[in-house]
């Protein structure tokens, strides 16, 4: 299989899943579109270095997560230069998202996830939204299954606490 064929295969098999991962990280349809194109451009340029030592799935996801994290770090710097916070920016995006058609609880869930520390956010997004098995996640993030389960547990507790607070606020 030549590079073009392999790339087309990757696009066909993974583009939608990668887009959803990007969407969860950047909380905006347009930014997710942009980030997804950046991810696949990176995949295309890195294809010559892929020797099949890792599973294609692991390799693709690793690139996607690295690109997403890099983008968020750059956005954090830009926000800081405007004396703003990235957390506030993410909340604003989630509140004003024209493509969101869910419940207030789902909106609160997105905000709670956006506020998680980097590693916990990655684990939560992959586990909860993408329903990825821990064994696959372990290969992508190069972390033990036990550590991932612990991360997810902590992240889930934080998210639940935020949702309970939100629900209590609505009930008052």
């Amino acid at each position: 299989m030549n590079a073009n064929e392999l790339f087309n295969r990757i696009v066909k098999e993974y583009s939608e899943r990668i887009w959803w991962i990007a969407r969860r990280f950047v909380n905006s349809h347009e930014d997710a579109d942009d980030l997804t194109q950046d991810i696949f451009l990176k995949i295309w340029t890195a294809l010559p270095s892929f020797r099949g030592e890792a599973q294609l799935f692991t390799w693709v996801y690793r690139i996607a997560l690295n690109e997403a994290m890099d983008r968020l770090r750059r956005e954090k710097v830009r926000a800081a230069l405007r004396f703003a916070s990235l957390d506030a920016e993410m909340e604003r995006r989630i509140d004003n998202d024209p493509w969101f058609d869910g419940t207030p609880a789902e909106r609160a869930l997105s905000k709670a996830v956006a506020a998680l520390p980097e590693k916990q956010r990655q684990v939560f997004i992959l586990r909860y939204y993408d329903e990825m098995p821990y064994e696959e996640m372990s290969q992508i993030l190069d972390t033990s299954v036990g550590a991932l389960k612990a991360s997810y547990h902590i992240a889930r507790e934080k998210v639940e606490a935020v949702l309970k607070e939100e629900a209590a606020g609505l009930n008052l």
Binding site: A3, N8, Q37, F40, W44, T45
Partner: peptide, 15 residues
């Protein structure tokens, strides 16, 4: 989205 992504291979220089 898939169509646009596939065109990356045609427009971006291979490394």
């Amino acid at each position: 989205l898939q169509s646009r992504l596939v065109s990356i291979a045609e427009t971006a220089p291979s490394v």
